[in-house]
């Protein structure tokens, strides 16, 4: 009886996931198996370039988001409660604002007649407008802008748990701020740093809107390549191959995250 109710309560969810997620995914994956799709994908230098660009952008974005997010998270955590809640609104607002809007701001800034070029020309740092938009750098800037708030939110949770007395002890023992940061603070933040980094990495690796708007047609990443193969070139099989490769990359990253968090959970508290 008890098992029956549990079964009935779980059934709609299980059916929904199987029919609406696994079935379509199988429909996508199945035709790519056995054919020459994957070897074709990996033999093309163009595709390997796209794969490399995707990973490189994700790595640089994660590193920059961490480098910029950590100081901000530390600073926010050390503010009065009223300032802190105001700042958390400032951090949350972009996360909840449409990605098109957030990427659009960088079109205005980085464009040929954009704000940045006007400043550079005005200061006579350059004679001609610099190409900033539709470059790999533009994708990285847009991605950092998009994912930095998520990094900061992940970090603030860990930073709030920091014991300030440990830092005071380090100061009493003569540690300079930089030493305190690298030897005392960062080791205590491992969980937050890892969660934030993997969220940002997976997000940057699979994002569509940013590379589409800021990278243009010549700087494709895996997600924009899927769209181009399917909609522009009409090669649905090759699009499926790219999709499967992207799934595998995501599963590896997410699996790594589970392993690392499990490892951190098992670690004794004083390690």
């Amino acid at each position: 009886m008890k098992n029956r109710s549990a079964f009935l309560l779980l059934l709609p969810g299980v059916l929904a996931i199987c029919l609406f997620l696994f079935f379509p995914l199988l429909q996508t994956i199945w035709p790519t198996l056995g054919g020459s799709g994957y070897s074709h994908f990996l033999h093309s230098g163009y595709n390997r370039n796209v794969l490399g660009r995707t990973l490189l952008i994700a790595v640089i974005t994660t590193a920059l988001a961490l480098g910029l997010g950590l100081p901000l998270a530390l600073w926010i955590a050390r503010q009065k409660a009223s300032v802190k809640s105001l700042l958390s609104v400032v951090i949350l607002f972009p996360i909840l604002t449409n990605a098109v809007v957030r990427n659009f701001t960088w079109i205005i800034i980085l464009g040929k007649d954009g704000v940045l070029n006007k400043v550079l020309l005005g200061l006579h740092l350059t004679q001609h407008p610099v190409t900033l938009l539709y470059t790999n750098a533009a994708i990285v800037i847009g991605s950092v802008y998009l994912f930095l708030p998520i990094m900061v939110t992940s970090l603030i949770g860990s930073v709030d748990e920091l014991n300030i007395e440990v830092e005071e002890a380090a100061a009493v023992l003569g540690a300079k701020p930089w030493t305190t940061l690298t030897k005392v603070i960062i080791p205590q933040l491992t969980t937050g740093i890892l969660t934030g980094s993997i969220l940002v990495f997976a997000g940057a690796m699979t994002a569509y809107t940013t590379p589409q708007l800021l990278g243009g047609n010549r700087h494709l990443v895996m997600s924009t390549l899927i769209y181009q193969q399917a909609m522009t070139l009409g090669d649905w099989n090759q699009a499926s191959v790219v999709a499967v490769v992207l799934i595998i990359m995501t599963v590896i990253v997410m699996g790594l995250m589970r392993l690392v968090t499990r490892w951190l959970d098992r670690r004794p508290a004083n390690a």
Partner: peptide, 22 residues
């Protein structure tokens, strides 16, 4: 894990698979 599985699949792939499969 089953019910969280949509988060493991890139969103663009979900859209693509739904279009193809459904």
């Amino acid at each position: 894990t089953l019910f969280l599985s949509p988060t493991f699949i890139p969103e663009i792939v979900i859209g693509f698979a739904l279009y193809q499969g459904l």
